[in-house]
């Protein structure tokens, strides 16, 4: 088996360990809280049943024992009598979370009214993906061209402006820029809506258009804060390539400068750039959560924000798991792509 195959296996094993570790950690942290919530739900439903029924009790103590027995029976039925870390229950929970069978949320419901965690998350996930792929694509295009542009003029005023902008935009919390954007374009100038949740119901045929209109302001914000450091990264790699001999050779035989920069240099700088893109895409997912909360974009981030507000534990577990999976797969793919392009990684 070649070096690349060994590398693939090593990485895959690492990915599975990480996924499992996160899952175990999450369940270990939330297990006691989830048990308490379940127990509370059982207790109130049993008391409700007893109040509804016509059973007559001689003394309050008799009623007490009856309720207690009922609760114990139900607790035993669903296996709550064992602690969350008991092997059988633990494996059960892990398997359930893996297939996103998280039961019902405590408060929140999906737009179609379902309280199943799976439904709620699946409804929000595409919107998060939509917002972020759109923004990242725009950032990538601007970053690539701007980066190549300033790389060709290293040391010029444009180059220094771009570097300064990259440093500045990295220090600002994106979600704060988002709040300023809402202030500027929703309050001062009434161009965009203040909240990014469309008012038309999802069943409306105009809903997709409305959604896109509500997406403009968040996209502008993410692009504004993101493109500077992108261009800076691209510049770094392109400058490295421009120092290579074959570029000098191309120049010598008279290939136009524009073609050298945008075609040859960019193409050769692509692999590391792609890797960094994949990595920071995964990293920006965290930022995504907060941006959505600031704008009220109806995706996973806003859901997280609401779930934290209501302490809706099943939803919090679900989102954490989904985000972890996305993040880990992105890191995994970045590693693979990078190794594929850079032979040194495989050997090391």
């Amino acid at each position: 088996m070649g070096g690349f195959g060994r590398f693939l296996i090593k990485r895959s094993v690492n990915m599975i360990i990480v996924l499992f570790a996160t899952l175990v950690l999450t369940i270990a942290l939330l297990g006691p809280a989830m048990d308490k919530i379940l127990l509370e739900a059982i207790r109130s439903s049993v008391i409700e049943q007893v109040n509804q029924s016509n059973i007559k009790f001689q003394t309050p103590e008799e009623r007490e024992t009856f309720v207690k027995n009922r609760i114990d029976l139900q607790v035993k039925n669903i296996g709550l009598d064992e602690p969350w870390y008991a092997p059988k229950r633990f494996t059960n929970t892990v398997l359930k979370v893996m297939v996103l069978d998280l039961g019902k949320s405590s408060y929140l419901t999906s737009e179609s009214g379902s309280a199943k965690v799976q439904d709620i998350i699946m409804e929000k996930l595409p919107k998060t993906v939509l917002l972020f792929t759109t923004s990242i694509l725009i950032i990538m295009v601007i970053g690539l061209y701007l980066g190549a542009f300033v790389a060709n003029r290293a040391g010029s005023i444009w180059d220094r402006l771009n570097s300064a902008f990259a440093v500045f935009s990295n220090s600002f919390p994106t979600w704060w820029i988002g709040m300023l954007m809402i202030f500027a374009f929703a309050f001062t100038y009434h161009i965009f809506p203040a909240r990014a949740t469309p008012l038309t119901p999802p069943s409306d045929p105009l809903y997709p258009l409305d959604l896109l209109y509500h997406m403009i302001l968040p996209v502008i914000t993410i692009v504004l804060v993101g493109f500077g450091s992108w261009a800076y990264t691209v510049r770094y790699f392109v400058i490295g390539i421009l120092g290579e001999d074959y570029i000098a050779a191309k120049r010598a035989i008279g290939v136009p400068e524009k073609r050298i920069i945008y075609s040859h240099a960019l193409k050769n700088a692509a692999p590391p750039i792609v890797t960094v893109i994949a990595l920071s895409l995964a990293g920006s997912l965290s930022g995504a959560i907060i941006i959505e909360a600031a704008f009220g974009w109806p995706g996973m981030g806003s859901l997280y924000y609401q779930a934290i507000g209501f302490l809706d534990i099943p939803i919090i577990v679900g989102i954490t798991y989904v985000l972890t999976v996305i993040f880990i797969i992105a890191v995994f793919l970045a590693d693979i792509v990078y190794a594929y392009f850079d032979p040194r990684v495989k050997v090391a």
């Binding site: 360990i17 996160t22 942290l29 965290s286």
Partner: peptide, 16 residues
């Protein structure tokens, strides 16, 4: 392993 853990979601779980 620590490198591939998603920071913010885990921080959220921890603080909750």
């Amino acid at each position: 392993i620590f490198y591939s853990l998603p920071t913010l979601p885990l921080l959220i779980i921890l603080s909750v």
